[in-house]
């Protein structure tokens, strides 16, 4: 259990995290979502007492992170997979961490095995690919077999197999009763992984809801039908009192509120040939973009016309174009750390 209470962080004039209060509960994967620069990483650093909050506090099982007696046993974190010494072998990188917490040496080999890095345990981590580096970071988070795991964008740069692996890993860890807190800017990824959702934009809390509720509220589900006997199909539907909600492009119908089974049976009864009968869900990504639209930090400029809408039919009408409001103050961010 992690509790944030009015957590605020200012960097000079810039408020990176603005009065955040929420709880992260055990036994669940909690997704922490926000666009670039929303303050996710800063929040996580404050949770680990790496950055000092300007005001507010974080409590982990009622304590400040610094007060935890066996930190790695309570919390494992992957903030940045590159945060290892490249000149050290994977094994030695983990060994230093294990020793600092009195974790037995055999555990190092165990976690390397768990993440599939056992064959390259003695290789310098400098030569690791993006995915291998990410796995090493995850191994370091798992080292203390902690109750709480925090991952900052763990799927960044991973291939589909790696993404699937992490997704299953996180679900498995949560199923064991652990608290999993994972940041991302991909709603679609979170929809598959997270049980609970916390959305922030420009450092402020925008949503704190269960994933199921979020999906329920934000996704329209419908069935798409396609048929060579379109007119006939329309008549049949009309007779059955079913009104298609949309006719997106040539030859397809979108129907809301009636299951695919019923529609299929209905068509079969009238001997109508179907080329498509598929349940669909409107993208959660759209819902996320709509939610954070006002607080998107870094907008891209359309070439030639700053702020002009990019011609993008997939974009919901009420989301401003990327390029609507680049915040010049952000360029003052300190480089190189």
């Amino acid at each position: 259990m992690i509790e944030l209470d009015g957590l605020t962080k200012r960097f000079g004039a810039k408020t990176a995290v603005d009065n955040l209060s929420f709880q992260v509960k055990p036994g669940l994967v909690t997704g922490f979502l926000g666009p670039n620069g929303a303050g996710k990483s800063t929040t996580m650093r404050m949770m680990l007492d790496l950055d000092n909050p300007t005001s507010g506090a974080v409590r982990i099982y009622g304590k400040r992170y610094r007060e935890l007696r066996e930190p790695l046993k309570h919390v494992g974190a992957l903030l940045d997979a590159k945060a290892m010494h490249g000149g050290r072998s994977a094994y030695n990188n983990l060994l230093c961490l294990a020793q600092s917490n009195g974790i037995p040496q055999r555990r190092v080999a165990e976690v390397l095995d768990l993440v599939g890095l056992a064959p390259v345990a003695r290789k310098k981590s400098k030569g690791f690919s993006l995915g291998m580096g990410q796995r090493l970071g995850i191994a370091s988070a798992l080292l203390g077999d902690p109750q709480i795991l925090m991952f900052d964008e763990p799927v960044n740069g991973l291939d589909p197999e790696g993404i699937l692996w992490i997704r299953n890993l996180m679900k498995g860890l949560a199923a064991e009763g652990r608290t999993i807190f994972v940041s991302s800017h991909l709603m679609s990824e979170m929809a598959l992984t997270a049980d609970h959702l916390i959305v922030i934009g420009q450092g402020r809390l925008l949503a704190d809801t269960s994933m199921a509720d979020f999906i329920h509220q934000n996704s329209r589900s419908f069935v798409r039908m396609r048929s060579p006997q379109l007119e006939q199909l329309k008549d049949v539907l009309h007779e059955a009192g079913i009104a298609p909600v949309g006719v997106p492009d040539g030859g397809a119908l979108e129907i809301d509120g009636v299951g695919a089974e019923q529609l299929g049976e209905l068509a079969a009864r009238h001997r109508i040939v179907l080329h498509e009968l598929s349940p669909q869900r409107a993208s959660l990504e759209e819902a996320f973009m709509r939610m954070t639209a006002d607080s998107v930090e870094y907008h891209a400029h359309a070439p030639g016309a700053p702020g002009a809408a990019i011609d993008n039919p997939a974009r919901p009408a009420d989301v401003p174009a990327w390029g609507a409001g680049f915040d010049a103050a952000d360029s003052t961010r300190k480089g190189g750390r």
Partner: peptide, 14 residues
């Protein structure tokens, strides 16, 4: 500090 390892170090040993 150059590698960012310091964050990992201070997370393991606050």
């Amino acid at each position: 500090h150059a590698t960012g390892l310091v964050r990992t170090t201070f997370t393991a040993a606050p």
